[in-house]
Simulated scan of single mutants.
Amino acid sequence: MKAVVKTAKGPGNVAYTDFPDPRRPGPGELLVEVKATGVCGTDLHILEDTFHNHPPVVLGHEFSGVVLETGEGVTMFRPGDRVTAEAPARLCGKCMYCRTGNYNHCGSRSGMGWGENGSFAKYTVIEEQMAHIVPDGVSFKAGALMEPMACVAHAIEITGLKGDDTVVVSGPGPNGLLMTQLAKAEGATVIVTGTEADAGRLEIARQLGADYTINVQAEDAAARIRELTGGYGADAVFECAGAQSSIDACFEYVRRMGRYTQMAMFGNRRMAVDMDKLVVKEIRMIGSQSQRWTSWDKTVKLLAAGKVRLDPLATHEFGLSEWEKAFEVFEKKQGLKVVMYPEE
């Protein structure tokens, strides 16, 4: 089969090439025909070799597809089921983190697209325990975005968002727009901030339920947020832009004793944090890593209830052989999510 493969260590070394079809599913595994697969920043980091990887390996971990065959002992799925999967492909199942349901921190975790063959191919093999049903009425294109939605659901979960919170989402990219919808589903009042270049994305944020949007280059965002919160500031801020200016602004937006959650990653770039402000305001700062079962459960239920829209976020579509163009569009932020489709 044809696949997008990291062929060797080092920058570059990615090719659309022939790769062996997956073996038949082993015990507890599913053989899946990939129908749609999304591009993630992690894929670009693997291309640049700034994220760990074990070549030769098929890239990709955001996908949806159809079960073709089940291995011995599989009871929860059958051929024909529409599925997606969690990014942690293999777990030890024995460490403290696995045993407490926090397996996103398993030290032996091996993920799709860097440690195990991923979804940038016609077929992939996944573990039953990592698989989830794509709800009826959710397209394959939208199903390919369930994994990043689960990451956002995890961030909301560990932040402890409440229905009466006022939330600032800094950065109206794909994760920011997912965060907007999930925070609204929790009942929060949502303010989305962005730059002049984000004008189109801020409009999408409004269409997806944001209560307020702020162009930080056109008005004093911190003053506006204080005005909207009785002078206090936001109860919680989610940094989704991955920029120093956004980090600094979030420390201004959040109220004393408020919560700051870091969603964006920085590709090994070191960022500065105003530790005095962290101390003086008694801000609770937390990072959010990947996903776990509870966030997936919320993702599936919200989609099944029609409370989150994923299709509008998939703005660009390519065949898998066009992966270089797809990566370029994603890297230049010319749209939101980029989805690719395996070719015959």
Rank of each mutant, 00 (worst) to 15 (best):
V4Q: 03
P11E: 04
N13A: 03
D18G: 10
F19G: 02
P27D: 01
G28R: 03
K35Q: 12
D43Y: 08
E48W: 09
F51K: 05
E69D: 00
D81N: 12
D81W: 05
V83P: 12
P88C: 01
C92W: 01
G93N: 09
K94S: 14
T100A: 10
T100E: 11
S110Q: 15
S110M: 14
M112K: 00
S119C: 11
F120K: 00
A121P: 04
I126L: 08
E127Y: 12
E127N: 10
E128G: 04
G137N: 08
F140N: 15
K141V: 01
P148T: 04
M149L: 14
C151V: 13
G160Q: 05
K162L: 14
D164N: 15
T166F: 12
V168K: 02
V169C: 00
S170D: 08
S170H: 09
P172C: 06
L178V: 08
L178C: 10
M179V: 11
T180P: 04
K184D: 03
A185V: 12
A185Y: 12
E196F: 13
L202V: 11
Q207V: 03
L208K: 06
T213K: 06
A222T: 07
A223E: 11
A223Q: 02
R224S: 08
R224K: 13
T229W: 07
Y232S: 12
Y232F: 15
Y232T: 09
D248N: 02
E252P: 06
Y253H: 12
M257Q: 14
A264S: 03
R270K: 15
M275G: 15
K281E: 10
I283P: 04
M285K: 15
S288K: 06
T294L: 15
T294R: 14
S295D: 09
D297G: 14
T299I: 11
K307E: 00
R309Q: 09
D311A: 01
P312K: 07
G319S: 05
L320P: 02
S321T: 10
E322Y: 09
E322L: 00
F327G: 00
